[in-house]
Design a protein around this nucleic acid. Structure first.
Lengths: 190, 190
DNA sequence: ATCGTTTGCGACAATCATGTCTCATACGGT
DNA sequence: ACCGTATGAGACATGATTGTCGCAAACGAT
């Protein structure tokens, strides 16, 4: 049975997470196929990268959908928005962990098609954070794009912490949520 | 007068912040010198990168020193530690902005010498954050390395926000400090 | 004006990743 | 067992980058 594109992509991503600058030859070896076969599935390195980016965006989008982000954005019920925000952040942890190298790799942002899709997804998320601000769930004195970039930065934090083994995987949701919402300062007396 | 190594490095960094994958030819052009002259100052690309990494580490170290981090680490006076933490974060903003490409570029972390120095600087900072935890200035329920990585991630946030023009530069210190210490959640009733 | 140094320019070899191609082989279904 | 297909191995051309070199021109100080 020929190794499917999906299988190749999964293995390629795992290797790219360790060595983002891996060559096609290195990727083929990591996947366990020959360079020729890799080129038969992805005619160029760029095509592979775009395919990976596309799949990462699908995952990202799925995290937004699964969290009910769109509906929550149109809602004014703090409970609905809060629940969506928690679910969204938990989903983003998975994406950041699986496609971590794409968080920082600049090559992904060069392709206009990928950049457009990325901007689109980010835009929806920004709208959601704005709704969370209106509902009083997020500080309203922060520029909403700063909030969005904060989530991004904290996902980099997650990735680094897991890469270095600084924290246990099961602790990450709690760490991310509390750090995002309460910060690292001491809990204020309520 | 020959263009000094320092001048070359400054111009090179500015260009690398825009295009982290720039070739020696592109860097030479950006600096305003010929490729041959660039090679006369830095015999190899690796030497240039190590020199840039070394300078970034110097700046980082300077930020720690200027903040009085070492003394504060040995202190138990919350005021001293708090003052140092604020100064440190403000200093790190400068470093992250100037050497931003080094935040994400993996090439810098491959050279053993640079990695060693980086680990050393990070270790001291971790010790400082631990002191801040003991003094009650940072949450004690967070792994100290998570705290350190949080600062790192928020510096990525700073860089992205400035790159995209999402926030004004003068607002960054306040945004970073309040986000780090209080998070993005609504201010708790004190 | 002259001399020593630095620079830019162009050429050069070497290396590496990419993309294409051929061909023999192994595999799978019938 | 047979046949079509996918695969692996390897060769090949190509392009980009790197690092080196030589030489002529520009520059600076005296």
């Amino acid at each position: 049975m020929p190794m499917s594109r999906e299988q190749i992509m999964t293995a390629a991503i795992q290797h790219l997470n360790e060595n983002p600058a891996a060559s096609m030859a290195q990727l083929a070896e990591a996947v366990g196929i020959s360079r020729a076969t890799l080129h038969r599935q992805f005619s160029s390195r760029e095509e592979l990268m775009v395919a990976l980016g596309h799949r990462a965006h699908e995952q990202w989008h799925r995290a937004q959908v699964n969290a009910g982000m769109a509906e929550a954005t149109g809602s004014t019920d703090p409970y609905v928005i809060d629940k969506a925000m928690h679910a969204l952040l938990l989903g983003l942890i998975e994406v950041a962990d699986e496609y971590g190298f794409g968080l920082t790799e600049t090559a992904m942002a060069f392709h206009p098609e990928l950049k457009h899709r990325s901007d689109e997804l980010e835009e929806r998320e920004v709208a959601f954070y704005a709704a969370a601000q209106r509902a009083g769930l997020l500080r309203a004195d922060l520029p909403v794009r700063w909030v969005s970039n904060t989530v991004y930065g904290l996902l980099v934090t997650v990735r680094e912490s897991l890469r270095h083994g600084d924290v246990a995987r099961r602790d990450v949701p709690r760490l991310l949520l509390t750090t995002f919402l309460q910060g690292a300062g001491p809990r204020r007396s309520s």
